[in-house]
Amino acid sequence: MRRVIQIIPIVIGITIVTFFLIKMCPGNPLKAMLFNPDIKPEERARLERLYGFDDPIYVQYFRWLTRLLKGDLGWSLYTKRPVTKHILERIGPTALLAGTTLFLSFLIAIPFGILSATKQYSLLDYSSTVIIFFGMSLPIFFLGLVVIYIFAVRFGILPTSGMKTLGIPFSIWDRIKHLILPISVLTFYQIAPVVRYARSSMLEVIREDYVRTARSKGISERDVIYKHALRNALIPIVTLFGLSIPFIFNGAFITETIFAWPGMGRLAVGAVFQRDYPILMGTTLVTAILVLLGNLIADILYAVVDPRIRYK
Protein backbone atom coordinates (compact mmCIF):
# COMPACT_ATOMS: atom_id res chain seq x y z
CA MET A 1 0.00 0.00 0.00
CA ARG A 2 2.82 2.35 0.84
CA ARG A 3 4.37 1.67 -2.54
CA VAL A 4 1.17 2.80 -4.21
CA ILE A 5 1.23 6.09 -2.32
CA GLN A 6 4.89 6.62 -3.15
CA ILE A 7 4.03 6.49 -6.80
CA ILE A 8 1.84 9.61 -6.69
CA PRO A 9 4.67 12.19 -6.57
CA ILE A 10 6.39 10.34 -9.41
CA VAL A 11 3.27 10.51 -11.57
CA ILE A 12 3.03 14.25 -10.85
CA GLY A 13 6.70 14.56 -11.73
CA ILE A 14 6.11 12.76 -15.01
CA THR A 15 3.30 15.14 -15.96
CA ILE A 16 5.42 18.17 -15.07
CA VAL A 17 8.44 16.97 -17.06
CA THR A 18 6.29 16.05 -20.08
CA PHE A 19 4.43 19.35 -19.99
CA PHE A 20 7.54 21.49 -19.85
CA LEU A 21 9.38 19.45 -22.47
CA ILE A 22 6.48 19.96 -24.86
CA LYS A 23 6.31 23.66 -24.01
CA MET A 24 9.99 23.89 -24.98
CA CYS A 25 9.32 22.44 -28.41
CA PRO A 26 9.69 25.09 -31.08
CA GLY A 27 6.51 26.49 -32.59
CA ASN A 28 2.81 26.36 -31.77
CA PRO A 29 -0.28 26.80 -33.94
CA LEU A 30 -0.59 30.50 -33.08
CA LYS A 31 3.03 31.28 -33.91
CA ALA A 32 2.33 29.93 -37.38
CA MET A 33 -0.28 32.70 -37.77
CA LEU A 34 2.43 35.32 -37.29
CA PHE A 35 3.29 35.01 -40.92
CA ASN A 36 -0.27 35.00 -42.15
CA PRO A 37 -1.03 38.54 -43.38
CA ASP A 38 -4.79 37.95 -43.19
CA ILE A 39 -4.70 37.68 -39.41
CA LYS A 40 -4.27 41.00 -37.64
CA PRO A 41 -2.20 41.28 -34.44
CA GLU A 42 -5.38 42.11 -32.46
CA GLU A 43 -7.00 38.99 -33.78
CA ARG A 44 -3.98 36.94 -32.73
CA ALA A 45 -4.01 38.42 -29.26
CA ARG A 46 -7.70 37.59 -28.98
CA LEU A 47 -7.01 33.98 -29.95
CA GLU A 48 -4.11 33.83 -27.52
CA ARG A 49 -6.44 34.93 -24.76
CA LEU A 50 -9.07 32.47 -25.93
CA TYR A 51 -6.71 29.49 -25.82
CA GLY A 52 -4.97 30.74 -22.70
CA PHE A 53 -1.51 31.09 -24.19
CA ASP A 54 -1.00 34.43 -22.44
CA ASP A 55 -1.57 32.98 -18.97
CA PRO A 56 1.39 32.29 -16.68
CA ILE A 57 2.92 28.88 -17.33
CA TYR A 58 1.74 27.26 -14.08
CA VAL A 59 -1.84 28.26 -14.82
CA GLN A 60 -1.49 26.62 -18.21
CA TYR A 61 -0.05 23.52 -16.53
CA PHE A 62 -2.93 23.17 -14.10
CA ARG A 63 -5.48 23.74 -16.81
CA TRP A 64 -3.78 21.01 -18.86
CA LEU A 65 -3.67 18.72 -15.82
CA THR A 66 -7.39 19.03 -15.07
CA ARG A 67 -8.20 18.20 -18.68
CA LEU A 68 -5.81 15.28 -18.45
CA LEU A 69 -7.62 13.89 -15.41
CA LYS A 70 -10.82 13.92 -17.44
CA GLY A 71 -9.04 11.77 -20.02
CA ASP A 72 -8.64 14.58 -22.52
CA LEU A 73 -5.18 14.63 -24.10
CA GLY A 74 -5.97 17.28 -26.68
CA TRP A 75 -6.33 17.09 -30.42
CA SER A 76 -3.86 16.02 -33.05
CA LEU A 77 -2.67 19.03 -35.03
CA TYR A 78 -2.36 16.93 -38.13
CA THR A 79 -5.44 14.73 -38.34
CA LYS A 80 -7.65 16.95 -36.09
CA ARG A 81 -8.78 13.92 -34.13
CA PRO A 82 -8.56 13.42 -30.35
CA VAL A 83 -5.16 12.13 -29.18
CA THR A 84 -6.85 9.60 -26.91
CA LYS A 85 -8.50 8.03 -29.94
CA HIS A 86 -5.19 7.82 -31.79
CA ILE A 87 -3.48 6.18 -28.85
CA LEU A 88 -6.30 3.72 -28.20
CA GLU A 89 -6.09 2.68 -31.83
CA ARG A 90 -2.37 2.11 -31.68
CA ILE A 91 -2.01 0.57 -28.25
CA GLY A 92 -3.45 -2.77 -29.39
CA PRO A 93 -0.80 -3.59 -32.03
CA THR A 94 1.99 -2.52 -29.66
CA ALA A 95 0.55 -4.66 -26.88
CA LEU A 96 0.35 -7.61 -29.26
CA LEU A 97 3.97 -7.13 -30.25
CA ALA A 98 5.28 -6.48 -26.74
CA GLY A 99 3.15 -9.15 -25.07
CA THR A 100 4.16 -11.95 -27.43
CA THR A 101 7.80 -10.91 -27.16
CA LEU A 102 7.69 -10.85 -23.39
CA PHE A 103 6.08 -14.28 -23.27
CA LEU A 104 8.38 -15.89 -25.83
CA SER A 105 11.59 -14.42 -24.48
CA PHE A 106 10.91 -15.63 -20.95
CA LEU A 107 9.90 -19.03 -22.27
CA ILE A 108 13.22 -19.37 -24.10
CA ALA A 109 15.55 -17.45 -21.83
CA ILE A 110 14.76 -18.91 -18.40
CA PRO A 111 15.60 -22.56 -19.19
CA PHE A 112 18.64 -21.33 -21.10
CA GLY A 113 19.87 -19.27 -18.14
CA ILE A 114 19.18 -22.00 -15.58
CA LEU A 115 20.91 -24.68 -17.64
CA SER A 116 23.97 -22.57 -18.32
CA ALA A 117 24.27 -21.86 -14.60
CA THR A 118 24.04 -25.51 -13.59
CA LYS A 119 26.57 -26.45 -16.25
CA GLN A 120 28.89 -23.51 -15.71
CA TYR A 121 31.84 -23.34 -18.16
CA SER A 122 30.20 -25.86 -20.49
CA LEU A 123 29.67 -25.34 -24.21
CA LEU A 124 26.09 -24.30 -23.49
CA ASP A 125 27.29 -21.73 -20.98
CA TYR A 126 29.74 -20.23 -23.46
CA SER A 127 27.20 -20.11 -26.25
CA SER A 128 24.72 -18.34 -24.00
CA THR A 129 27.42 -15.80 -23.11
CA VAL A 130 27.98 -15.21 -26.81
CA ILE A 131 24.25 -14.70 -27.37
CA ILE A 132 24.15 -12.23 -24.49
CA PHE A 133 27.01 -10.22 -25.97
CA PHE A 134 25.45 -10.14 -29.42
CA GLY A 135 22.08 -9.21 -28.00
CA MET A 136 23.75 -6.33 -26.19
CA SER A 137 25.81 -5.17 -29.13
CA LEU A 138 23.93 -5.45 -32.42
CA PRO A 139 21.81 -2.37 -33.06
CA ILE A 140 18.20 -3.53 -33.25
CA PHE A 141 17.49 -1.65 -36.47
CA PHE A 142 20.48 -3.29 -38.16
CA LEU A 143 19.29 -6.78 -37.29
CA GLY A 144 15.82 -5.77 -38.44
CA LEU A 145 17.15 -4.66 -41.82
CA VAL A 146 19.20 -7.83 -42.19
CA VAL A 147 16.23 -10.14 -41.55
CA ILE A 148 14.04 -8.13 -43.92
CA TYR A 149 16.76 -8.40 -46.54
CA ILE A 150 17.18 -12.14 -46.09
CA PHE A 151 13.64 -13.37 -45.53
CA ALA A 152 11.55 -10.82 -47.38
CA VAL A 153 13.73 -9.53 -50.20
CA ARG A 154 15.98 -12.46 -51.04
CA PHE A 155 13.70 -15.42 -50.37
CA GLY A 156 10.38 -13.64 -50.37
CA ILE A 157 8.92 -15.99 -47.77
CA LEU A 158 7.67 -13.38 -45.34
CA PRO A 159 6.13 -9.93 -45.81
CA THR A 160 8.37 -6.90 -45.25
CA SER A 161 6.01 -4.69 -43.32
CA GLY A 162 2.60 -3.88 -41.96
CA MET A 163 0.06 -5.95 -40.08
CA LYS A 164 -1.91 -7.48 -42.93
CA THR A 165 -1.71 -8.06 -46.64
CA LEU A 166 -3.71 -5.43 -48.50
CA GLY A 167 -6.77 -6.61 -50.33
CA ILE A 168 -7.35 -9.91 -48.60
CA PRO A 169 -9.71 -10.42 -45.66
CA PHE A 170 -8.33 -10.90 -42.16
CA SER A 171 -6.98 -14.33 -41.40
CA ILE A 172 -4.96 -15.61 -38.47
CA TRP A 173 -2.29 -17.12 -40.71
CA ASP A 174 -1.76 -13.82 -42.50
CA ARG A 175 -1.39 -12.00 -39.16
CA ILE A 176 1.12 -14.59 -37.93
CA LYS A 177 3.17 -14.24 -41.09
CA HIS A 178 3.40 -10.51 -40.48
CA LEU A 179 4.29 -11.06 -36.84
CA ILE A 180 7.16 -13.52 -37.31
CA LEU A 181 9.93 -11.10 -38.30
CA PRO A 182 9.29 -8.23 -35.86
CA ILE A 183 8.72 -10.64 -33.00
CA SER A 184 11.83 -12.68 -33.62
CA VAL A 185 13.94 -9.51 -33.79
CA LEU A 186 12.47 -8.12 -30.57
CA THR A 187 12.66 -11.47 -28.79
CA PHE A 188 16.33 -11.82 -29.65
CA TYR A 189 17.00 -8.58 -27.78
CA GLN A 190 14.81 -9.38 -24.84
CA ILE A 191 16.45 -12.78 -24.36
CA ALA A 192 19.92 -11.41 -23.56
CA PRO A 193 19.15 -9.66 -20.26
CA VAL A 194 16.80 -12.42 -19.08
CA VAL A 195 19.34 -15.18 -19.71
CA ARG A 196 21.95 -13.16 -17.89
CA TYR A 197 19.69 -12.48 -14.97
CA ALA A 198 18.44 -16.05 -14.71
CA ARG A 199 21.99 -17.38 -14.88
CA SER A 200 23.39 -15.15 -12.15
CA SER A 201 20.36 -15.70 -9.94
CA MET A 202 20.71 -19.47 -10.28
CA LEU A 203 24.47 -19.31 -9.65
CA GLU A 204 23.82 -17.40 -6.46
CA VAL A 205 21.24 -19.86 -5.20
CA ILE A 206 23.41 -22.89 -5.96
CA ARG A 207 26.03 -21.56 -3.56
CA GLU A 208 23.51 -21.17 -0.71
CA ASP A 209 23.77 -23.26 2.43
CA TYR A 210 20.44 -24.99 2.02
CA VAL A 211 21.49 -26.34 -1.36
CA ARG A 212 24.61 -27.78 0.21
CA THR A 213 22.46 -29.24 2.99
CA ALA A 214 20.16 -30.82 0.44
CA ARG A 215 23.14 -32.35 -1.32
CA SER A 216 24.64 -33.67 1.88
CA LYS A 217 21.33 -35.33 2.74
CA GLY A 218 21.92 -37.47 -0.32
CA ILE A 219 19.16 -36.05 -2.50
CA SER A 220 19.82 -36.67 -6.17
CA GLU A 221 21.40 -33.83 -8.11
CA ARG A 222 18.30 -33.48 -10.24
CA ASP A 223 16.04 -33.00 -7.25
CA VAL A 224 18.48 -30.56 -5.67
CA ILE A 225 18.46 -28.40 -8.76
CA TYR A 226 14.82 -28.59 -9.74
CA LYS A 227 13.10 -28.87 -6.36
CA HIS A 228 15.31 -26.80 -4.08
CA ALA A 229 17.34 -24.37 -6.11
CA LEU A 230 15.11 -23.57 -9.07
CA ARG A 231 12.16 -22.24 -7.10
CA ASN A 232 14.30 -19.80 -5.20
CA ALA A 233 16.19 -18.76 -8.29
CA LEU A 234 12.91 -17.88 -10.01
CA ILE A 235 11.94 -15.33 -7.35
CA PRO A 236 14.06 -12.41 -8.61
CA ILE A 237 13.17 -13.28 -12.19
CA VAL A 238 9.55 -12.41 -11.41
CA THR A 239 10.54 -8.79 -10.95
CA LEU A 240 12.24 -8.78 -14.32
CA PHE A 241 8.81 -9.17 -15.88
CA GLY A 242 7.80 -5.70 -14.79
CA LEU A 243 11.22 -4.18 -15.34
CA SER A 244 11.30 -5.40 -18.94
CA ILE A 245 8.54 -3.02 -19.96
CA PRO A 246 10.69 0.06 -20.71
CA PHE A 247 13.15 -2.16 -22.52
CA ILE A 248 10.41 -3.61 -24.69
CA PHE A 249 9.08 -0.15 -25.45
CA ASN A 250 12.49 1.03 -26.64
CA GLY A 251 12.82 -1.98 -28.90
CA ALA A 252 9.23 -1.81 -30.09
CA PHE A 253 9.58 1.85 -31.10
CA ILE A 254 12.41 1.08 -33.50
CA THR A 255 11.03 -2.27 -34.64
CA GLU A 256 7.67 -0.68 -35.44
CA THR A 257 9.37 1.97 -37.54
CA ILE A 258 11.35 -0.58 -39.55
CA PHE A 259 8.49 -3.02 -40.07
CA ALA A 260 5.86 -0.29 -40.55
CA TRP A 261 3.91 -1.82 -37.67
CA PRO A 262 1.02 0.54 -36.84
CA GLY A 263 1.72 0.87 -33.11
CA MET A 264 2.49 3.59 -30.58
CA GLY A 265 6.15 3.77 -31.57
CA ARG A 266 5.38 4.56 -35.15
CA LEU A 267 2.79 7.08 -34.01
CA ALA A 268 5.38 8.86 -31.88
CA VAL A 269 8.18 8.83 -34.45
CA GLY A 270 5.79 10.07 -37.12
CA ALA A 271 4.55 12.81 -34.77
CA VAL A 272 8.10 14.13 -34.38
CA PHE A 273 8.40 14.70 -38.11
CA GLN A 274 4.94 16.25 -38.39
CA ARG A 275 5.61 18.43 -35.31
CA ASP A 276 2.40 17.00 -33.89
CA TYR A 277 3.11 17.85 -30.25
CA PRO A 278 -0.18 16.75 -28.65
CA ILE A 279 0.37 13.24 -30.04
CA LEU A 280 3.97 13.24 -28.86
CA MET A 281 2.91 14.40 -25.41
CA GLY A 282 0.22 11.72 -25.25
CA THR A 283 2.46 8.83 -26.23
CA THR A 284 5.22 9.99 -23.88
CA LEU A 285 2.83 10.23 -20.97
CA VAL A 286 1.15 6.90 -21.64
CA THR A 287 4.41 4.96 -22.02
CA ALA A 288 5.91 6.54 -18.89
CA ILE A 289 2.86 5.62 -16.84
CA LEU A 290 2.85 2.07 -18.21
CA VAL A 291 6.50 1.72 -17.18
CA LEU A 292 5.68 2.99 -13.72
CA LEU A 293 2.82 0.49 -13.42
CA GLY A 294 5.20 -2.25 -14.56
CA ASN A 295 7.62 -1.36 -11.77
CA LEU A 296 4.82 -1.30 -9.24
CA ILE A 297 3.56 -4.71 -10.33
CA ALA A 298 7.13 -6.05 -10.15
CA ASP A 299 7.47 -4.83 -6.57
CA ILE A 300 4.14 -6.26 -5.51
CA LEU A 301 4.82 -9.60 -7.20
CA TYR A 302 8.15 -9.77 -5.46
CA ALA A 303 6.55 -9.33 -2.09
CA VAL A 304 3.92 -11.93 -2.93
CA VAL A 305 6.43 -14.54 -4.11
CA ASP A 306 9.15 -13.96 -1.54
CA PRO A 307 7.87 -14.12 2.05
CA ARG A 308 11.11 -12.57 3.30
CA ILE A 309 10.23 -9.23 1.73
CA ARG A 310 7.75 -7.13 3.65
CA TYR A 311 6.96 -3.53 2.86
CA LYS A 312 6.10 -1.74 6.03
Binding site: V17, N250, F253, A268, V272, V291, L292
Partner: peptide, 18 residues
Protein backbone atom coordinates in the same frame (compact mmCIF):
# COMPACT_ATOMS: atom_id res chain seq x y z
CA UNK B 1 12.68 7.99 -10.54
CA UNK B 2 10.69 10.33 -12.78
CA UNK B 3 13.38 10.32 -15.47
CA UNK B 4 13.78 6.54 -15.24
CA UNK B 5 10.05 6.09 -15.79
CA UNK B 6 10.37 7.36 -19.34
CA UNK B 7 11.61 4.64 -21.69
CA UNK B 8 14.90 6.23 -22.80
CA UNK B 9 14.05 6.20 -26.46
CA UNK B 10 10.84 8.16 -25.83
CA UNK B 11 12.74 10.75 -23.83
CA UNK B 12 15.56 10.87 -26.35
CA UNK B 13 13.13 11.35 -29.25
CA UNK B 14 11.32 14.11 -27.37
CA UNK B 15 14.53 15.99 -26.60
CA UNK B 16 15.68 15.43 -30.17
CA UNK B 17 12.45 17.02 -31.38
CA UNK B 18 13.14 20.07 -29.20
Amino acid sequence: DVIISFPWLVLVILVAAI
